[in-house]
Design a binder for these strands. Structure first.
Lengths: 263, 263
DNA sequence: AACTGCGTTTCACTCTACGGAACAATTGAC
DNA sequence: GTCAATTGTTCCGTAGAGTGAAACGCAGTT
């Protein structure tokens, strides 16, 4: 495992300076939204001078901005501009959108859509309910571990057994006391998910956060994404899991139909 | 004016390969969400071989994906991942968010927040009403011209006269028959905006699309962003402008208060 | 079958990106 | 107040990384 943010091992066909620049971009995360040149150069493992030159270029292209007072760096608006043009899984997002806000509103929970990408559950769409102070905003673009989230379980459950093991090659990391860290237990859990048609996450990724997820299927009946609702445990309590799951599965099925799925 | 997507003139301190790679990223836009190597190389003005190498690197870093069948390229999920970490104007976005969806819902219009960036009105946040088929989704990250949009007028109106002229150095482009293309008329319009406290866009950017915008102010009373609602002209008709503006200004004031503004 | 387009690979050359060193400007310690 | 240790930034000679011409294999047309 390479250090977080460090420039990855270079494939010889790759353009070095570009790989390094992207490593710099990845140095900015939710813990470090603002960094200095020296700080970045240490994180990424580059010479200070090289880091500075790459940063300067990123600035003149708008992908990074510099605070004029502190001199520190942040990701810039150009990033948003480019992200708005991402069309990946546009069909799913478009089909799901009309259903998500009403679902979130009625359940008083944050609704998310996640897909399987590079061995993680990747959130591509979100809707939040209005009128609540405690909501999980800003999950679009975030990756979450497959074994510790309800969406992850959905994305795993209908995969061929061989692929499941391939995806979970690394040991299952523990995030909370309730995280499933044993492969055997996880396989039992996935079996339950397949039988029930939905997955539950009981404070397995963050303490105090519960979630339920259901599969989104396309015309070939394959599971292509997971629709989830999540909320603080006191609002999405274990007692209500079954009724919430009913509504969630109904919404997921409606979206799947839009995608050509015939039950 | 350089051709759209073409690699900009290079500042000698910039890292060439990186600037070129970002030019490639910008070749993907809403008209061209999917491109081939040759196509990109022509758009950006680079050798096909160079384009290919840069694209390969962008792929291995996740910023671009390639359709395995067609072999064509698109922007990848890594773009979303990085965009989710953009913290620019986070205070405004956070303060505005709780007000936007309800506002959008009650008015049956799309709500947007835009800031002034690089001589354009840049959308940084959006909320859409549920229950409508015709809505303008996906405007986050989009730039719109200052002289042809309601948000643009707001962002201009309270700027020092010198800065207004600096920002509008280029001739005012026409987008629809109703676009204001004369500087004199625009200045009259801005005077009206200052007097009324809100701005109107009457099919000046897209035919059939109306919008109203109001200023968001911070603790120093400066206008830092614009809050707008927009909808098809038949839903947001001229007759309702005044009442809608009332609600909009009320919401904008409430958000401004969150930002420390004291009226 | 020849042709034209595509995405991809190879390779020798040269220009470009690199990193050591020095810069001015802050910051913090004493 | 001074000194030392940072910071972000600039300069420059060198080496190696990135470049672009050419050719590749493969589809789809003509």
């Amino acid at each position: 495992m390479t250090a977080a943010g460090a420039v990855a091992e270079r494939r010889k066909s790759d353009v070095q300076s570009l790989s390094r620049a992207i490593a710099i971009l990845h140095a900015f995360n939710h813990q470090n939204p603002e960094l200095g040149v020296t700080e970045i150069s240490k994180l990424v493992g580059l010479h200070k001078s090289t880091t500075f030159r790459l940063l300067s270029t990123l600035i003149s292209e708008g992908l990074v901005t510099q605070d004029p007072e502190s001199g520190r760096y942040r990701l810039g608006l150009g990033m948003l501009e480019l992200a708005g043009r991402v069309q990946v899984h546009a069909e799913v997002r478009q089909a799901a959108r009309p259903f998500m806000q009403p679902l979130a509103q009625r359940l008083g929970a944050t609704a998310n859509i996640a897909i399987l990408d590079r061995g993680t559950s990747f959130n591509i769409e979100q809707a939040v309910p209005t009128g609540y102070l405690v909501i999980n905003y800003g999950w679009v673009g975030r990756r979450t571990p497959l074994h510790a989230t309800s969406t992850g379980k959905i994305l795993l459950a209908w995969l061929p057994a061989a692929e499941i093991r391939a995806v979970l090659s690394e040991p299952l990391e523990r995030y909370t006391p309730d995280t499933i860290t044993s492969m055997a237990l996880l396989e039992q859990e996935l079996e339950r998910v397949r039988a029930a048609g939905y997955a539950v996450g009981r404070e397995e990724y963050e303490v105090g956060l519960n979630a339920i997820a259901a599969p989104l299927r396309d015309a070939t009946s394959s599971v292509i994404a997971a629709l989830s609702v999540s909320a603080p445990a006191y609002r999405l309590a274990a007692a209500s899991f079954e009724t919430v799951a009913g509504e969630l599965v109904a919404a997921a099925t409606a979206i799947s139909r839009q995608l050509g799925y015939v039950p």
